[in-house]
Simulated scan of single mutants.
Amino acid sequence: MLHITEHAHGIRELRLARPPVNALNAELIRALRKAIEAAPAEGAQALLISGSSGMFSAGLDVPALLMLDAPALQRCFEDFFGMAAALAQCPIPVAAAVTGHSPAGGAVIALFCDYRVMARGPFKIGLNEVQVGLTVPAVIRDALARLLGPYRAERLLVSGAMLESDAALRIGMVDELANVDQVPQHARLWLQALLALPRQAMLETRAVARADLIAATRREHLPIAQFGAVWQRVETQATLHALVAKLKAGKPA
């Protein structure tokens, strides 16, 4: 479900490994959150989040989450937003190796990292929550606006647009493109260059530069209850169940 690999220079890779599409169920979300939180204390100098070739993560596992009772769903959302906060507040650099498609929750993971290398080609990334009846929380909007500016972020969020990798690079949603089989390597090279700098100065400056993102992900700002309320709305439930029915019928979502 989550494979951990140690690389040179103290780079620890957390690879999403939940076939076929690395959908984020409660167990994977919790495992990822705990691994991010534990890494600095365990001696990791930098983190790399990766997926499988052609698919970073398809986002939240909607069929699995619809089967959870209210307490379990609440814990899942706590872990999801806690995972985003752990990425934002991580005291060591974090790069995302976006190895393929990255809608919704997959894009959220990438947004809260320091740097994003995406697979070149017909792979898409975006926050398409509106298309499945969900409201994008303010903390995620803020993370996207931090990269793109408020107006461009607004246009993408309200439409739920998905962008191919070339377009994502042009507007700054990702930082670099690489061939699909070389994405993790390019992300590691970026981390290695950062780790070659004077460490204390780099880490302290990084913390200053990310202060806005850190502040936005403090516990009191995380929209756990609000997101849960949106999830339970009649419109949202109808849209999510329709999505699951399409998936079961083998139709495109």
Rank of each mutant, 00 (worst) to 15 (best):
T205C: 10
L127Q: 03
A97D: 04
Q182H: 09
V174S: 07
D61F: 02
A39R: 08
D166T: 07
Q131D: 09
Q232P: 00
A31E: 14
E235V: 08
T5L: 08
P71Q: 10
H186S: 12
E154L: 04
V136C: 13
A107N: 11
A245P: 01
V21K: 14
P91G: 14
A39N: 09
V130N: 11
R120P: 00
H9D: 15
H186G: 02
V108E: 14
A143F: 01
A253S: 11
V208M: 11
L28V: 05
V234I: 12
Q182I: 01
F123T: 02
I140V: 15
A97W: 01
Y115N: 11
A238Q: 14
Q200M: 04
E6D: 13
L163Y: 06
D166I: 01
M118N: 07
A153M: 07
T236Y: 03
L156D: 06
S53A: 13
L60A: 14
D79C: 06
P252L: 09
I224L: 08
H7K: 08
Q131P: 00
L65H: 12
L60T: 04
L66D: 09
A26C: 03
A242R: 11
V136K: 06
A178V: 00
A58L: 05
T217E: 10
V183G: 06
G250Q: 09
A238C: 03
H3E: 13
A253N: 02
A23V: 00
A238M: 03
A107Y: 01
I36D: 13
G160R: 06
L157E: 11
I11C: 02
I92E: 10
K124Q: 11
A153I: 00
L247C: 06
S159E: 13
R155N: 12
L148E: 08
R116T: 05
F77C: 06
N25Q: 06
A44R: 05
G100N: 05
A196N: 05
L157A: 10
E204W: 02
L32D: 09
A72C: 07
D69R: 13
Q192H: 08
P20M: 03
R15T: 04
F77V: 07
L16Q: 03
I11E: 04
G160S: 07
V208E: 14
P198V: 00
L213N: 12
A17W: 06
A38Q: 12
R155H: 12
I125R: 05
H7P: 04
H221R: 14
Q131S: 12
V130Q: 14
L147D: 08
N128Y: 03
W231D: 10
P198G: 09
D181H: 10
S53C: 07
E154Y: 11
I4F: 02
V62Q: 12
R170C: 05
G59L: 02
L32P: 13
A245M: 10
I29D: 09
P93T: 10
A23D: 10
L169F: 04
